[in-house]
Write a protein that binds this DNA or RNA. Structure first.
Lengths: 236, 236
DNA sequence: AATTGTGAATTCCTTCACAGCC
DNA sequence: GGCTGTGAAGGAATTCACAATT
């Protein structure tokens, strides 16, 4: 087990591998090779082995990986064996959709608080029975409820303020849906999902179809999740 | 103007620059330097100049870039000067949120069709007055309405089928919200926004706070948008 | 024989540093 | 003096290729 820094590209992939292993386990598969796993995602098999090698030696030469065992390792690595408490700030259409989104692993993430600054909304319950609270209570509730993760689903103009407040309250991990660059304090991780940028970047590829890769072969080129601007340092 | 391949990281950044230029233009700024722009995003100024240099020489030495002029160039480069017609497939919570999302540039993207396979939903209108149609009509409507972009907001199990159908109908650009890897046909661009992976990857950084970058300095390391697994080729 | 784990090679991306221009 | 555009350098991520292992 090494202690090099692990890039976000790697952690994203680990999550994808995990999803696949869940399916394989459900289907009753005993083992899987890096090659077979790689095929599922148009990835190189060495990539998968390298990703896993950051954390240990989980495979068996000549055999591959035991599905259930590797699944457990990934759960552990990604910190999904403990349930984390999540708040959503901004309960408009997007916030509501996130609150009801069935895709989050509910064993690992429990949404326990919703906040909105619109007084007309406070007290209203979502489908799950959770009541919307005033943003005035943000700090208090986050502390009392031991909330570790926040999703920001407010307009861009309000996002910075929200980040400050939840940081103040001790939140260390933020999934930001506001289309704005946020500058978190040290020790706070912000991951932005920018729908505007995703769509506009797609538009580019409509105008330049050939820029996708090459000649008929779909290279599946860098299609997925989670890089902001690639910013690597503090500018010049 | 070069004709090298432009990476998706670059197009994502162009979209971010554009958003900033919109704000600058609204605030009445005449010019902006790459350095000043870079500061907004914790980016290196050379990065910005390089990104722009793929498409032309837009700046003036000693001065910087004319805000409005550069804005127009970016609109053109990203293909945002023409209005593109968009369909949303899957009108659950997420699809509804997307249909009503105020952050999309409505001058460039017009949502003109909503599809859902639940008969109980067909005919229902969203806030904007758009009626939900049966997925049976997917292909016909996409062709007749000249739809160029589709957003997939159906469960993972249905996403592959939807991709096939919209590809059949001629859609070349897809924003996929289903948590699954899709294998598009050549010439079709799929960009996946994987909420599950975003959240699980955040979880990793909660367990490994130091892996974020270094000692107190927030490096803003690779925080943003839009890489799948980094897949670069067709495996081995 | 099959498959892992990994050093070396490669490819891609970012940053430096400075000539050229305003 | 200030800023762009860019070749060269540096760094990061991916892929190759093979020794090691079952």
């Amino acid at each position: 087990m090494k202690t090099e820094k692990v890039s976000e590209l790697t952690t994203n992939r680990l999550s994808v591998y995990l999803r696949c292993l869940n399916d394989l386990a459900a289907a009753g598969a005993e083992t899987i090779s890096s090659h077979a796993l790689a095929e599922q995602f148009n990835l190189n098999s060495a990539q998968i082995r390298k990703d896993l090698a950051y954390f240990g030696e989980f495979g068996i030469r000549g055999v591959g990986y035991y599905v259930e065992e590797l699944r457990q390792h990934l759960l552990k690595i990604l910190g999904l064996t403990e349930k984390r408490r999540v708040a959503i700030v901004g309960v408009g259409n997007l916030g509501t959709a996130l609150a009801n989104y069935p895709g989050f692993n509910r064993d690992s993430f429990e949404i326990v608080a919703l906040f909105d600054n619109d007084p007309a909304k406070t007290g209203i319950r979502t489908r799950s029975g959770l009541a919307i609270q005033s943003t005035e209570k943000l700090c208090d509730v986050i502390k009392h409820e031991n909330i570790e993760i926040a999703m920001i689903a407010v307009p861009a103009s309000a996002a910075e303020k929200v980040l400050e407040e939840i940081t103040e309250a001790g939140v260390k991990a933020v999934l930001n849906f506001a289309p704005i660059h946020l500058n978190p304090k040290p020790g706070v991780k912000v991951k932005t999902v920018d729908l505007t940028t995703s769509l506009e970047s797609l538009s580019y590829f409509l105008v330049n179809p050939n820029s996708q890769g090459a000649d008929g072969v779909n290279l599946d080129y860098r299609e997925f999740l989670s890089q902001e601007t690639g910013a690597n340092g503090a500018g010049d």
